[in-house]
C-alpha cells in the first residue's frame, strides 16, 4: 500500500535531483490523485477522511502544483485543534498537563486536540507556500513554545502528564525545531531543544539518526555555531549510513527511509 507521508517526503528530498525526474513525476501524480474533494488528504487510498497528511502533500506540491496545494492550504486553515474555553477546565488542564489549553495548533484529525508533529508539519507546509503572517501560524508558534519541555525538546504534545515529566522524542523535537527555524524563532527554548538533540545518550536506531541527520543538515543557516552544526550533521550521516540495510531501506520502514532520504541530497 502506498502512503502519502513517505511519498511526499521522498518527493521533497528528490525534487532537485535530475536522475529522479520520473520518480518525482509519478509521486506528484499519486499525490494529486489522492487529494480529496474537500482539498485535504488522507493517509492512503483507502482513507476517506482528510487529516494531517494534508500538510505533507501541500509541502511536497508547493513548488510544482500551486493550485492543488492552495486547496490544501485552505483545508489546513479551516481546521484546528480543540481549544479549551471553560475557565475551570483550563485550570484543570494546567495542573494535569502543564499546558495553556487556550492555545492550539493542528490536530492529527479533525475533532482532535492539537499535537506537536502535525502543528510543526503544518507550519512547514505553510512556509513552503510562502505564507508567513497568518494568525494561525503565529498561534501555532506560541503553541510549540508553550508545549516545550523545560529541560529541552518536545514530547508528542504536553510536557507533563499527571505526576511525571515526559521525555523529549527525536521526531517531535527535530520537526518543531525545523518549523521554528523556518519562522526565524530563536530563543532559550530552541537553544535548549538543540542542546538536547546534540546529545548522543540515546539508543542508536536508524529512526533516531535519520531525524537528527535531517535537522542538522537543514539547520546550518539557523545555527550560530556553524562548525558544531556541521559536526553534528556529519556524525549523524555517518551513523545513519552504517544502519542502511542491504535492500537500501532503513529498518525496512518506508517512513524512516523517507526521512533518511531527506539527507541524501546534501
Amino acid at each position: 500500500m502506498s502512503f502519502v507521508e513517505p511519498t511526499a517526503a521522498v518527493m521533497i528530498a528528490l525534487e532537485q535531483d535530475a536522475f529522479a525526474v520520473d520518480l518525482v513525476r509519478r509521486a506528484r501524480a499519486f499525490l494529486k490523485q489522492l487529494q480529496r474533494a474537500d482539498g485535504g488528504w488522507g493517509i492512503a487510498a483507502p482513507d476517506d477522511e482528510s487529516g494531517w497528511m494534508t500538510a505533507w502533500a501541500v509541502w511536497a506540491l508547493a513548488q510544482s502544483d500551486d493550485d492543488v496545494a492552495q486547496r490544501g492550504v485552505q483545508w489546513l486553515l479551516n481546521h484546528s485543534g480543540l481549544r479549551v474555553t471553560d475557565p475551570k477546565e483550563i485550570e484543570r488542564v494546567k495542573q494535569v498537563l502543564k499546558i495553556d489549553a487556550t492555545i492550539t495548533g493542528w490536530p492529527w484529525l479533525p475533532g482532535d486536540a492539537a499535537w506537536i508533529f502535525p502543528t510543526a508539519l503544518a507550519l512547514l507546509a505553510l512556509n513552503a507556500m510562502r505564507i508567513h503572517e497568518h494568525p494561525r501560524e503565529q498561534e501555532a508558534i506560541q503553541y510549540l513554545l508553550d508545549r516545550a519541555i523545560p529541560t529541552g525538546g518536545w514530547n508528542i504534545g504536553n510536557p507533563f502528564m499527571v505526576t511525571g515529566d515526559l521525555p523529549p522524542t527525536v521526531e517531535n523535537t527535530a520537526l518543531a525545531l525545523l518549523a521554528l527555524d523556518a519562522y526565524a524563532i530563536e530563543n532559550e527554548i530552541t537553544r535548549r531543544a538543540r542542546a538536547w538533540l546534540a546529545q548522543e545518550n540515546f539508543t542508536p536506531t536508524a529512526f533516531e539518526w535519520a531525524w537528527r541527520a535531517w535537522y542538522w543538515t537543514r539547520s546550518k543557516s539557523q545555527v550560530s555555531d556553524l562548525k558544531a552544526s556541521e559536526e553534528y550533521a556529519n556524525r549523524a550521516l555517518v551513523a545513519l549510513k552504517e544502519l542502511q540495510r542491504a535492500d537500501g531501506s532503513f529498518d525496512g520502514n518506508p517512513f524512516t527511509t523517507a526521512i533518511a532520504a531527506m539527507t541524501l541530497d546534501v
Partner: peptide, 13 residues
C-alpha cells in the same frame, strides 16, 4: 497510529 495519530487521541475523544 499513522491514521489516528500519536497517542491515538482521536479515539480517546
Amino acid at each position: 497510529g499513522v491514521k489516528y495519530g500519536f497517542p491515538k487521541n482521536t479515539l480517546h475523544i
